[in-house]
Simulated scan of single mutants.
Amino acid sequence: MSDIIWPEGYVPGFTENFCSNEVIVTGLTVADVWPFLNNPHHWPTYYANSADIRFYDDQGPDLSSGRRFYFSTFGFPVEAQVVEHVPPVLGQAARIAWHGWAGSTADDRLDVHHAWLLEELAGGRLRILTQETQKGKPAEALALANPNPMINGHQDWLNGLVGAARKAKQS
């Protein structure tokens, strides 16, 4: 199975917070799921913890390499830029990753690398992996929270993504 590609400074274990969520499902392909992940305007329809989606420079509605966008999540106003974008190609994993940031001072600055991997496995299975590393004082607080809001929130995102793709496929 494939792994997330981590940029320097964001390798898990060397940041203040890390979360990893994964599902493996049947009955869906990367092509079924990709549109619901690659177009952020879909996110609020299946993931309640995302809102206020907008793109810069009249770009969008889909993500692509280098594209800048904005969204609100976990109470943070997140500026983001896509740093990895590999659309579905038969036989290889599809990938999306962005660098996101919020805040401007040492006390409120949060920097994240949020990555997604969609990979078809043997037996008609689809693996969806999302992992995020975070740096900054807000990340330290999130890492100590129990239950962990990042783990729970990203699991909701995964479950909603799968549900949205299944619903669309049945239509």
Rank of each mutant, 00 (worst) to 15 (best):
M1A: 05
M1R: 00
M1D: 01
S2W: 00
I5D: 12
F18D: 07
F18R: 06
N21P: 01
T26I: 08
G27H: 03
V30C: 05
A31V: 05
V33L: 04
N38W: 03
N38R: 10
N38H: 03
N39A: 06
H41V: 05
W43P: 05
A48S: 15
N49L: 15
N49I: 06
I53C: 09
R54V: 01
D62V: 12
L63R: 11
S65Y: 14
Y70M: 07
S72F: 08
F74N: 03
G75Q: 12
E84P: 08
V86I: 08
A93V: 12
A93G: 12
A94D: 08
I96P: 02
A97S: 13
W101D: 11
S104E: 08
V112I: 15
A115E: 10
A115K: 14
L117K: 02
L121D: 05
G123H: 07
G124D: 00
G124A: 00
L129D: 03
E132T: 00
P138D: 01
E140C: 01
L144Q: 10
A145F: 11
N146Q: 11
P147W: 09
M150N: 02
I151F: 14
L158D: 09
L158F: 15
L161P: 12
A164F: 14
A164L: 14
A168Q: 15
